[in-house]
Design a protein around this nucleic acid. Structure first.
Length: 439
RNA sequence: GGCCCCUUCGUCUAUCGGCUAGGACAUCUGGUUCUCAUCCAGGUAAGAGGAGUUCGACUCUCCUAGGGGCUGCCA
């Protein structure tokens, strides 16, 4: 059997780091591309942090991004007995020994150490970094069982990989040194050594590993901020890989078809929130209209009860809004004027557009003209203002109207806005602004 | 300190010895437009430094500098 089996093996801490999830993405794509299996192993040996809630967060993030896994979830804590059996074998074969040690924090006890070869070179061909070699003498013996009898990462990780029949280990760059050690364990156990691929880190502007101090570092934060999972997925994928041509926005199918581990970059990549934001906008534009309408209603509803409108009305609003929405979280403020009569007036816009001489008269005049419009539609309303402007630009009318009816200086096309608002609200708001706000 | 790895526009990157060094984001200019956004056209901007190999080097080799990782009874 030469079936490819990869795994994502996070320790659940309640948050999923973007660098970590990128490793999951690469593993997943590699498995899907090669027709192999993508396994999930929960390294839950830290009982303090590995709560059911933390594990739920992990599953949730993966589902959100569409990272589905094959076979049952493997829990590391359930394999402790195996880990210790294997350590016994290592002890018997002389590959491990017990010794009394004092730890950094002053605890003294007997730990089990793995005996590293004392000479020779340990080497492997890393799928992304190329040939790697290190003299065995440069690596110290290392602990595999704590003085309290619990297995340590190195042994647990290797034994689990053997038990899960993992063929390719794709993980973070920070594990390269461990890999030299782990290869020695595989060999001592007579187990086949898997292939390795080490992924570079995602770094901040200073070139240091990207952390929460640099901005949103966890998947959940992007979700809360209204990023689309497809955009985050696509962006993270591009941070260290590209299809070899100019394509950047890729469908999941294209990603699977094109992804090759050999083409993953060795160098660390700086996280650029601006490009992620751009990509999010690209994906927002791609949302099918009916889905966007549903999203629109859902988010508009956070402002209060939705006004009664037919599907055509919502569809029209969605058409106007979708191309100028970068983040779904921007929707509430953009639709506030349609959902609520309690407008939030932007002081700057009010100052600039309403508190000017003559504006009051203009608005009152417009109320008169608009009330005579029979067909309350964007083109008809535009015709009214066009006539007033006599080809000199509609700015002097358009801007005050916009602020008067929406409270804001920007938004969807004004006449589309008025059409959506309807005659009654438009006239009422124009009059109200003229009476109470204008100088 | 020791060991391992890395180095093309501000950022993500293309280039697998022929380069007038291409694309995207960001930025700037112009156009469209009632604002914002979209869209369209265009501009600025890069091979860390030094040797070598070669007819020819961003691409290969070496050195230097700079950066990162690891050096736990963490994972």
């Amino acid at each position: 059997m030469s079936e490819i089996r990869v795994r994502f093996a996070p320790s659940p801490t309640g948050k999923v780091h973007i660098g970590n999830i990128r490793a999951a993405i690469y593993n997943w794509l590699f498995a899907r591309h090669t027709g192999g299996k993508f396994l999930l192993r929960v390294e839950d040996t830290d009982l303090e942090r590995s709560t059911p809630e933390a594990i739920a967060v992990l599953f949730d993030c993966m589902k959100w991004l569409g990272l589905d896994w094959d076979e049952e979830v493997f829990y590391q804590t359930k394999n402790v007995k195996r880990h210790l059996e294997v350590v016994d074998r290592l002890l018997e074969s002389g590959h491990a020994y017990k010794v009394e040690k004092t730890s950094r924090d002053g605890k003294t006890g007997v730990v089990t150490m793995f005996r590293m070869p004392k000479e020779g070179v340990i080497e492997f061909d890393d799928i992304v970094k190329g040939h790697m070699a290190k003299k065995a003498e440069d690596i110290q013996d290392f602990a595999i069982v704590r003085s309290d009898g619990s297995p340590i990462f190195h042994i647990a990780n290797v034994v689990d990989d053997i038990d899960q029949r993992v063929t390719h280990i794709i993980r973070g760059d920070d594990h390269v040194e461990n890999t030299f050690k782990h290869i020695c364990i595989f060999r001592a156990l007579g187990a086949p050594v898997p292939k390795y691929g080490h992924l570079s880190m995602i770094v901040n502007q200073q070139g240091k590993p990207y952390s929460k101090r640099d901005g949103a570092a966890f998947v959940g934060e992007y979700r809360e901020q209204g990023y689309l999972p497809e955009a985050l997925f696509n962006y993270l994928l591009l941070l260290g890989w590209n299809p070899g041509d100019d394509r950047e926005v890729l469908s999941r199918e294209e990603m699977i078809k094109l992804f090759e581990l050999e083409k993953v970059h060795v160098t660390a990549a700086m996280f650029d929130p601006k490009k992620l934001a751009w990509m999010n906008g690209e994906y927002v534009k791609k949302i099918p209209r009916d889905e966007f309408v549903a999203e629109l209603k859902k988010r508009a509803a956070t402002l209060g009860p939705l006004p009664e409108h037919d599907d055509a009305w919502w569809g029209y609003l969605a058409d106007q809004l979708q191309i100028r929405t970068k983040f779904l979280n921007d929707i509430p403020s953009a639709v506030r004027c349609f959902v609520s009569d309690d407008l939030e007036f932007d002081p700057k816009a009010v100052e600039k557009r309403l508190k000017k001489p003559g504006v009051k008269e203009t608005l009152i005049d417009l109320v008169g003209r608009f009330s005579k419009v029979e067909d309350w539609s964007a083109p008809a309303l535009e015709a009214v203002v066009k006539e007033l402007s006599q080809g000199n630009g509609m700015g002097p009318w358009v801007h005050p109207i916009r602020v008067a009816v929406s409270g804001r200086g920007e938004g969807i096309g004004l006449f589309e806005m008025l059409q959506l608002l309807g005659r009654e609200k438009t006239l009422a708001r124009l009059s109200a602004a003229a009476e109470t706000i204008c100088a």
